[in-house]
Amino acid sequence: MKNRPCISHFPFLIFVLLLLSGCWDQTNIDKRAYVIAIGLDKGEKNKINITYLISNPEFSKQEGPSSEPSHEIITFPANDFISAKNTANSIVAKEITYNMLSVMIVSEEFSKDPEFIRYMYDVTKDREIKHNNPLVVTKEDVSTFLTENKPKLETRIHKYFEFILENANKAGLIPSFKLHSYFSITESDAGLFLAPYATTQRTTSGKYTAGEDEFLAGELD
C-alpha cells in the first residue's frame, strides 16, 4: 500500500510521454488547400490529366470578398490521383486535401476508356474521398468544362455543385449519381450505371424530340 503511488505513477508517466510526442496526423485547418472538384481526363502515354478546382477561403471572410478570385483551377498530368495530391504541390502552396470534395468529374472520352475502372479504384484507396460524392461525366474535357463553367450567382463554388446536382436530381433531369452506386453497380456485374452528363457547349443541332411529354406510363418499352 505504501509504495503503490510510485508504481502506479510510473507507467502513467510513460503513457503521457508517448502521448506528448504525438501530432503525426495533425495539419492545421488553414494550411490546407480544399479541392472542390476533381476532374479526370485522358492524358498522353497512359497518363491522366488531373484538374483541381480549389476553393479560396479568403472569399469566405466576413469583411467581404477580397480582390482574390473565388477559386483556382489547375490541370496537370499524373499517374493516378493519389500521387496527384503531391504533384499538385508544385503549383499550389498548401497541402492538398479532398475533405471538401463535392464532385468528381470525368470526361466522356476517358470514361469510355477500358482502363477507366482501374483509375476509379484509386478512389477506394484514398480515405478522404467519400463514396457519397457525385460522379459527373462531361462532353468535353474536364479542364475546359471547369474553366468554361462560370456560374454567375453562386460564386462560392462548392455550393454551386452541391445545389445544382441536388436540384437537378430532384427534378428528374439526372439520375442518382453517387460514386458509391457506381462501385456497387459495377461490382455486382449486371447493372448499368447512369451518370449525369454535363457540358458547357451549346448544342448546335437543336433537334428537339417532338412532344416529349406525350407518353403514357410504360409506353417507352
Binding site: Q26, I29, D30, P57, S60, N99, R156, K159
Partner: peptide, 18 residues
C-alpha cells in the same frame, strides 16, 4: 480543426480557414 476537418460543414470550414 487539426485532425478531423471533414466533419465541419463546408462554409464554416472555409470561414475558419480564412
Amino acid at each position: 480543426t487539426n485532425y478531423h476537418v471533414e466533419m465541419i460543414p463546408a462554409d464554416l470550414l472555409l470561414a475558419i480557414s480564412s
